[in-house]
């Protein structure tokens, strides 16, 4: 979890490091990224509080360095949301994986 140079530093805490050149290209948000953001916002909406900002922060800091580094921004937010919703018992990992496989199948059918 911790930084190799400074064990007090979490892997998400990258201020002051050097990750190289900044790519200035700006890409359009993909539909699924927008949808993931919308689901997350809807769950966090006032009165619902099924998924709030602090939980999303905690999940990012808990998912582990390999996953954190591997995923891009919207993948991380989706992973974080999934972690918290599973933790709260809204659905299980197994249910989710099964449903993902079903959807992949449906999408493959639709592409034919």
């Amino acid at each position: 979890m911790a930084d190799t140079d400074d064990p007090r530093r979490g892997y998400h805490d990258i201020g002051g490091k050097d990750y190289g050149a900044i790519d200035p290209e700006v890409t359009e948000m993909k539909p699924w990224e927008r949808q993931s953001t919308a689901i997350s916002n809807a769950l966090g909406a006032a009165g619902r509080h099924l998924y709030v900002t602090d939980e999303s922060r905690r999940a990012r800091e808990q998912m582990g360095e390999p996953l954190y580094s591997d995923l891009d921004y919207y993948e991380r937010s989706t992973e974080s949301m999934k972690m918290i919703l599973v933790e709260k018992g809204l659905f299980t990992e197994e249910e989710l994986e099964t449903r993902m496989a079903e959807i992949a199948q449906r999408m493959a059918e639709a592409r034919k």
């Binding site: 993909k30 992973e79 993902m100």
Partner: peptide, 11 residues
Amino acid sequence: YELMTYAIREL
């Protein structure tokens, strides 16, 4: 993660 998003929505 695209699949995960749709699956989360459905569930």
